[in-house]
């Protein structure tokens, strides 16, 4: 067991626990976007920053990827953490201003104005959908492509993937793109199950372990009518 100190409270946790898990165990709220239980931690959204170490040599780390260390002092809501978190949220909001989840988080953190130009992307590259597809659905239909400014998530060659079983898991976990699989922007749809209005359930017959995340499922409703 390893003893750490979070916001003045001592806590004994098992080796390999992350700071995020330890802090949540104590009930300290840490906002996250790219973290999800059951998926490997990724550290992409940086919202979960916490301050570690003794002053004056403290530093900010992403708590979802940082394993506990013996005697580590952690502050989850110091002024430095809150300032950094607000800046990150402001930037995320600028890239995806239409995301309800990011809007809510920003409002919770009292961001009242936007200083950055709105980009209206539909992706913050958090990789949740990629990990969902690979780790939970064992499909590996989508992944990261390119790098730098042109980095994006999608299927190879932008064609419908043969290993995609239209489970909708990628859309279910996405914090930014609720609009992506409604008809508003069909050419950017990841799985295309909704965009081409072919009921995904029909094709799913060939997969015995079908798990459907489509909720509400437009295709099923069409089928019922």
């Amino acid at each position: 067991m390893i003893t750490i100190n979070i916001n003045g409270l001592d806590l004994q946790v098992e080796k390999g626990t992350t700071l995020l898990e330890a802090a949540r165990f104590l009930g300290f709220p840490i906002p996250t976007l790219c973290h999800m239980e059951g998926l490997s931690p990724y550290g992409a959204c940086r919202l979960c920053v916490v301050e570690i170490g003794e002053s004056p040599r403290t530093r900010l780390v992403s708590s979802c990827t940082y394993p506990v260390e013996e005697g580590l002092r952690v502050r989850t809501a110091s002024s430095r953490v809150l300032k950094a978190r607000r800046m990150i949220l402001e930037l995320l909001l600028a890239s995806c201003p239409q995301s309800k989840i990011i809007q809510d988080l920003a409002s919770k953190h009292e961001i009242r104005q936007q200083r950055f130009r709105q980009e209206h992307d539909d992706c913050i590259l958090c990789g949740l959908c990629v990990r969902m597809c690979e780790e939970q659905m064992a499909a590996k239909a989508i992944g990261f492509r390119g790098r730098g400014r042109t980095r994006s998530i999608g299927t190879p060659f932008d064609i419908k993937s043969e290993v995609c079983r239209l489970c909708g898991g990628c859309i279910y976990v996405c914090p930014a793109c609720q609009l992506r699989c409604t008809y508003s922007d069909p050419e950017k749809a990841i799985c295309g199950g909704c965009a081409n209005i072919s009921p995904p359930c029909v094709k799913k017959e060939k997969f015995d372990d079908m798990m459907c995340y489509m909720d509400p499922c437009v295709a099923c409703e069409i089928k019922q009518d």
Binding site: K140, G143, G146, R147, F157, S161
Partner: peptide, 12 residues
């Protein structure tokens, strides 16, 4: 290897 990984490297 999955095509996604190969494509990711090829475009990187």
């Amino acid at each position: 290897r999955s095509l996604v990984d190969i494509y990711g490297v090829a475009t990187f």
